[in-house]
Computed example of a mutant assay.
Amino acid sequence: MAQKKSPTKKAPPKKGGATKKTKKKPQNGKNVLVKLAVAIILVIAAAGAVAYMANRYAPALEEAAQSQAAKTGAKAPRPAEPPKPAAAKPQPAPAAPVEKAPIKKPVYEIFDDKHIEEIPDHEPEVPEEPPVELADDRPRVAIIIDDMGYGNGIQHKFLDLPYVITYSILPHSPDQIEIANLAHDKGRQVLLHLPMEPMQYPEVDPGPGTLLASMTTDTMMDILKEDLAAVPYIAGVNNHMGSRLTMESGALYPIFTVLKKQGLFFVDSRTTRHSVCRPSARLFQLPFAQRDVFLDHVRTEAFVEKQLKLLVSVAKKRGQAIGIGHPYKVTYKVLAARLPAVDAEVRLVPASDLVRVIK
């Protein structure tokens, strides 16, 4: 038979005291501190992540908001701006006296030694005109006074001369309407004194409304139409300066086309011996004439008297002649004194009487 194991007996406690159980010390204080530190670190990291994301995506979000506002018609919220420091209120400066800008007077035709090409030393050779049938025996003379329209006082004296004189007025000049009205009321003929580019441009500027050889045709036509509309009662046109432009047939063609359509004539002032205005006018069958004598490119009484005699002489030789002067005091003085004698030798007529279509 198997023997039963006897139960193991516990050893008796040692003498000297009862047996003590070992107890663990509580860890609750340390765990709380660790958890708190971890939480703080996580909060700091989350705040940093939020700040980073805000800085990175704020422009895109703002742009999206503005785009959405544009679609819906609502106003996008504007980002807050930091307050600006209050600026010191500026003290008003003392008001300066207002002065009116002086009226710029025109540069007249260039007749001095520096720009000699503007006028030949001698009168240009022109083709002989066919005999003109006259209503009487006297040759016909047209005197044109250029550069009218600027208030210098003397132009009104020219208008008071009791003789047939043609007045050519610069476009966009301060007195253009007044002078045109006065001339028209006195039964005098009015021309547009059309500014054209001289050889010395831009050192020499013909003034407002100038036509330049470098312009496109469209630009030139726009300016030309403005010039033509600026001066009332015009019967025709003559050039102001223009030693450069009147050498360019390509520039003259569109100008003459407009003049013909508007029923105007053209008088070539002949500021250069190389002008091609005559053949261009012939091509377009535009009523045309050209200057024979300049009266006052030297401003002395003796010279103007000599030129006036030359004008009469040319008229007697050819049956007609055109003289061009300017609103100078010396020119007025000579005309006022000499026109009675001139009117006895020749018949003073408006410029339109001496233009014709060249065959």
Rank of each mutant, 00 (worst) to 15 (best):
M1K: 13
A2M: 12
A11W: 09
P12I: 15
P13E: 00
G17Q: 11
K25D: 06
N28H: 15
K30V: 12
V32K: 10
I44V: 06
A51V: 11
Y52G: 10
N55S: 07
R56K: 05
A58R: 14
E63Q: 11
A65S: 14
T72M: 00
T72W: 01
P77N: 02
K84D: 02
P85Q: 14
A87C: 05
A88Y: 10
K89N: 01
P92V: 04
V98W: 13
E99K: 15
I103Y: 09
D112T: 09
I119N: 02
D121H: 13
E123M: 12
V126F: 07
L134T: 02
D137A: 14
V141G: 02
I143A: 05
I143Y: 00
D147I: 01
H156M: 09
D160F: 07
P174Q: 03
I179M: 06
A180G: 09
A180R: 06
H184Q: 10
D185K: 14
D185M: 04
L194T: 12
M196G: 11
Q200T: 11
E203D: 14
L211Q: 15
L211G: 08
A213N: 10
T217S: 15
D222P: 03
A229H: 05
A230Q: 06
P232G: 14
A235I: 03
G236P: 04
V237E: 13
S249A: 15
K260S: 06
K260T: 09
K261S: 15
G263Q: 04
T272S: 13
T272W: 01
V276T: 10
V276D: 08
P279L: 09
P287S: 11
P287I: 13
R291I: 00
V298Y: 00
K306P: 04
S313A: 08
K317T: 12
R318G: 04
Q320C: 10
A321T: 09
I322H: 00
H326V: 00
P327Y: 08
K329Y: 10
Y332H: 14
D343I: 00
A344S: 08
L354V: 03
